[in-house]
């Protein structure tokens, strides 16, 4: 079927619900409204209020309740309405979800998914556009996933639902309806913690994910004189270091492009690993393209904040000239 990311995720959730009656969806407006982006559309009518639960408006309890459910034989898939609001649940996620298994030495597992829309570019109000992948990846114990296309979205969601570890599933708002793609009708998994080499090349490695994948691909398509290898991480944590290092060994040049702000962002972690393990293979310093080291601005300013094709293009020119 041809599907955009919303349809692909909706289809995945439907199949996951049908497959296992222990799966419960919960969150704000996930029921009749089908979620503010309609990702859970129709599931309330199909599976009923016991399995598609409109919760009272309280993010901390959505996360905490999910932990209690997951520790007691259910497999909750929670929706946080926006990444900014999800921070009200940060304590539950960090203090409990991330370490429930470790604290009980595997006595408990937490098969749960927390989905939330992330990143900007669609002129939403403040707190609706954050890119929090570094926050959740920094903790340890959380699998952090971010698809960049409908095919991966469906396959990663199904894999996340089968995982026995808590998965933070980040859905770029900008990509929800940006384009359609052929998506298989049947259930399939896209492996967690496995990056996707989208395009092979031998002069430059570009590591990216989420909203920046299209931006990078657009620039690379225009720069016909540069043989760039584009890697879509798909899972931020645990990192698929092997795929990145293998590519860097081949190309000797690497750029990391993310929408999250620069300082202490995920690019720093990737750059550090490359510096530790591949520095003698590098023929130019690692380059990061990211939003400025600032909180996400109001929508009137986002065009100046989110990295654009021009920035990626200039960064490629720079790294190729060294």
């Amino acid at each position: 079927m041809m599907a955009n990311m919303v349809t692909a995720l909706n289809n995945a959730l439907d199949q996951i619900m049908a497959e296992n009656k222990d799966v419960v969806i919960l969150g704000e407006d996930v029921g009749k409204d089908g979620g503010v982006f309609r990702v859970t559309d129709g599931l309330f009518d199909k599976y009923g209020r016991d399995r598609v639960l409109d919760t009272p408006l309280a993010e901390s309890s959505i996360a905490g309740v999910s932990i209690g459910m997951a520790a007691s034989g259910l497999r909750p898939i929670a929706e946080m309405q926006f990444a900014g609001f999800m921070l009200l649940a940060f304590s539950q996620i960090v203090n409990h979800a991330a370490r429930f298994r470790a604290r009980t030495r595997g006595g408990y597992t937490l098969p749960m998914v927390i989905r939330t829309p992330v990143s900007g570019g669609v002129r939403t109000l403040e707190h609706h556009s954050d890119s929090p992948e570094a926050l959740y990846s920094h903790i340890g114990g959380l699998v952090v996933v971010e698809p960049s296309n409908p095919y991966d979205a469906k396959g990663l969601m199904i894999a996340a639902s089968h995982s026995d570890d808590p998965v933070i599933f980040l859905e770029p708002t900008k990509l929800y309806r940006l384009f359609k793609q052929e998506v298989p009708e049947d259930m399939y998994e896209v492996q967690l913690s496995k990056a996707n080499v989208m395009k092979e090349g031998d002069e430059l490695t570009i590591v990216t994910w989420g909203t920046m994948v299209n931006v990078v691909n657009n620039v690379v398509a225009k720069k016909k004189n540069v043989s760039a290898e584009v890697i879509d991480l798909r899972t931020i944590n645990p990192l698929d270091e092997e795929t990145i290092l293998k590519s860097v060994e081949k190309t000797g040049r690497v750029m990391i492009v993310h929408e999250a702000s620069m300082s202490f962002g995920p690019g720093a972690e990737i750059a550090a690993r490359i510096a530790e393990k591949e520095i003698f293979h590098l023929s130019a310093p690692v380059v990061r393209v990211a939003a400025p080291s600032l909180p996400y601005p109001f929508p009137g300013y986002e065009q100046y904040y989110v990295p654009n094709e021009l920035r990626v293009s200039k960064a490629i020119d720079k790294i190729m000239s060294e």
Partner: peptide, 22 residues
Amino acid sequence: QVLKDEEEEAVAEGFWQGEVSK
């Protein structure tokens, strides 16, 4: 200073306008 550097780079490189070079 690190933020000032980011701002100056954005101004100097014209990140806020322009077309992608081929």
